[in-house]
Simulated scan of single mutants.
Amino acid sequence: MRMRRWTWAALVSASAMMMPLGAGAVEFTCWNPGGADLVAGAAEYWTPERIANAIPDGEMLQTPPTAWSRSDREDGLVGDAERAPIGEAPYKYGGKLVYTRGGHDYSASAQFVADANIVIGAAHSLWKGGLAASNIRFYQGYSNGGGTLYHMDRAAVLLRWTEIADNPPSLASSQFDYSVMRTTAASAVGKYELAIDGAHVDDDVTITGYPGRLEGGNYMYRETARITVQAGTAYDARPHPMYGGGASGGAWFVTADNVHKAVSVVSNGAPDHVYGPSFTQDTADLIAIVKNGCP
């Protein structure tokens, strides 16, 4: 496991696929989560039964229900949440993330973003209690089983996240709550574009994920929320009918001119609102670092 400060000069030589890089430095923690060298063992580990029994990971805010809260319906939908058309763009860029942390198996959400070998999820999924996740696997297009399995050989979170990971979930901490992973094979279905500061107050965003409370987390769901607060590099959007765990790491996206741009991921939430980080130049820099193997 590595804790590094990556400088501007190193980043320039590391990757030409990113936008122009700033003059600062990004501090990060990077590790091998059990990638190409453990493919056979990990493939056997994640049986359908083990995936089904994985704990839907999530950070719940202690916020009482308000007028934004859910309303159960006979058709199985909850509030504005509905099954996403997993075979269509951009939903097909996403999938279910499974991993082991602290001796327990968890499930969350993630998606390809910015590069065909880069998957972004939540930091609290991969690093909590001083423990880094292992056995990380991404099932793109997961829908009540199946999907395309992608193995990981690098995973990283911001060093700032590791310093606050055990604090109570909040808008302040959510600005660091994203992880970047590298797959050993390129996406066969495409990817979201990365949007830096890509949404603002009063913008509507579509939020995706695999909420464990809805159909056992077996299907990707989507909801529409409106950003009500932008504080520093974090968003607060309302409502959040997919609350309750499992949707952590799912993309917030906007679409313009038929281009789907990821602006955030699910960090933590309650029935009436959800927090997420606003992607920054640090996000772009960390993607370049992980793409290059965290040398």
Rank of each mutant, 00 (worst) to 15 (best):
G102H: 08
L61Y: 04
V12R: 15
D153H: 12
G95L: 04
H273I: 07
E27G: 02
K291W: 11
P241C: 03
W68T: 11
P277T: 05
V26W: 04
V39H: 07
L11Q: 08
G87K: 14
R213A: 15
Y142E: 02
G250R: 04
Q230V: 15
H124P: 01
G232C: 03
A155K: 04
H151N: 14
A10H: 12
A231Q: 15
I118Q: 07
Y221C: 01
G146S: 01
W161P: 07
T224R: 15
R2C: 11
A43W: 03
G293M: 04
T148L: 12
S264T: 07
P20F: 08
E74T: 11
G146F: 09
Q175F: 02
G212I: 02
H124M: 06
F28K: 09
V254T: 14
P241L: 00
Y45F: 14
R2N: 13
A195Y: 05
Y150E: 07
A156P: 09
M220E: 12
V180C: 01
A14H: 05
E49F: 02
V189T: 13
A81V: 09
Y221H: 10
T224C: 01
I196M: 14
G103Y: 04
Q281L: 10
Q281D: 13
K92G: 00
P48T: 11
Q175Y: 05
E49D: 14
V119G: 00
G269W: 02
V189M: 06
A234H: 00
Y192S: 02
R154P: 05
G130Q: 01
R70F: 13
E44D: 13
I120Y: 01
N135M: 10
P56S: 07
F138S: 03
A185H: 09
G216K: 11
G76Y: 12
D105N: 14
G41K: 09
A247F: 00
A25F: 11
V201T: 14
A172F: 12
L158K: 03
Y178V: 09
N53A: 14
A52W: 00
V259E: 06
R154L: 07
R2P: 10
V254M: 12
A23Q: 14
T283N: 05
Y178N: 05
P33C: 08
T233R: 15
G232Y: 06
S278T: 00
D202I: 06
A262K: 06
E74G: 03
P295H: 08
S69H: 13
A54C: 10
L21M: 14
R70H: 12
A10M: 10
K191E: 13
D72F: 14
L61C: 05
D57W: 15
S13C: 10
A52Q: 11
A188H: 11
V265K: 03
L21G: 03
G250F: 02
S13W: 12
H104Y: 13
T208N: 09
L21Y: 12
L158A: 01
L61T: 02
G22S: 12
G145R: 07
G293I: 05
M17I: 10
G35L: 05
G249V: 00
L97R: 00
P33K: 06
G190P: 00
A251N: 01
F112T: 02
E193I: 08
S170Q: 07
D72G: 08
A199H: 06
W8H: 15
R226L: 04
Y93K: 02
H151Q: 14
W6T: 15
E59A: 10
